[in-house]
């Protein structure tokens, strides 16, 4: 099977490790070979958290610069920061809700303009699907479901071998019972929004 390389970037606490687990389960249900790697340790200290997910028969679990087929960003600045992982064929999916780094609050950095971030990504990659996933998560009933909204957009893009059914099954499997309903709704909102944007 062809190899597909997916990078997920987020700010610590945004739930990308859970999103990776859901993806992993969904792949396992469909018997899709999958390998992932994460950087732990500082995840809860507000730093950048990156997951690399490789579908297919490759043995490596990490993704080198320029080699991601899909980049899924949970925060626009982090999407921009991870652009080194992309090439001109990469599909980029990004949340547009900003989380300003504390260095900006301290005045030692400037958050780039959101429009110019999008324009830059659009110009350099094959496609950018960008929307406010955090707002959709709130609409689904829980801001913590932002990760599930973005999974919806990821599946809709058709760039990974994941199916909606398996992801939903994995959501039921992996996420806390009281959040399952919000999470499924969030997933669907993300899926439909990405569809409307396509």
């Amino acid at each position: 099977m062809d190899t597909t390389r997916l990078i997920i970037v987020a700010v610590g606490g945004q739930g990308n490790l859970l999103a990776s687990k859901v993806i992993g389960d969904a792949a396992l249900f469909a018997d899709i070979p999958i390998r992932m790697s994460e950087i732990h340790g500082m995840a809860q200290r507000g730093g950048v958290v990156e997951s690399a997910i490789v579908f297919g028969n490759a043995k490596s679990t990490i993704i080198a610069d320029g080699e991601a087929d899909v980049l899924l960003g949970f925060e626009p600045l982090e999407t921009l920061r991870a652009l080194n992982k992309c090439n001109s064929d990469t599909i980029v999916i990004s949340n547009l809700a900003q989380l300003s780094p504390f260095t900006v609050t301290l005045g030692s950095g400037v958050y780039p303009n959101l429009k110019s971030i999008q324009a830059l990504i659009r110009a350099k990659t094959a496609k950018l699907i960008a929307f406010d996933a955090t707002a959709l998560a709130m609409e689904a009933g829980n801001v913590m479901s932002t990760n599930m909204v973005l999974l919806g957009a990821l599946v809709q893009s058709g760039k990974t071998p994941l199916s909606s059914d398996n992801i939903k099954k994995a959501i039921v499997n992996r996420t806390k019972k009281k959040f399952v309903e919000f999470n499924i709704k969030a997933f669907e909102l993300g899926f439909n929004t990405a569809k409307a944007l396509a």
Partner: peptide
Amino acid sequence: DLPEIPQRPPSLC
């Protein structure tokens, strides 16, 4: 041509 991206170092909670 990317703008300077402000760092996001881990910090005390």
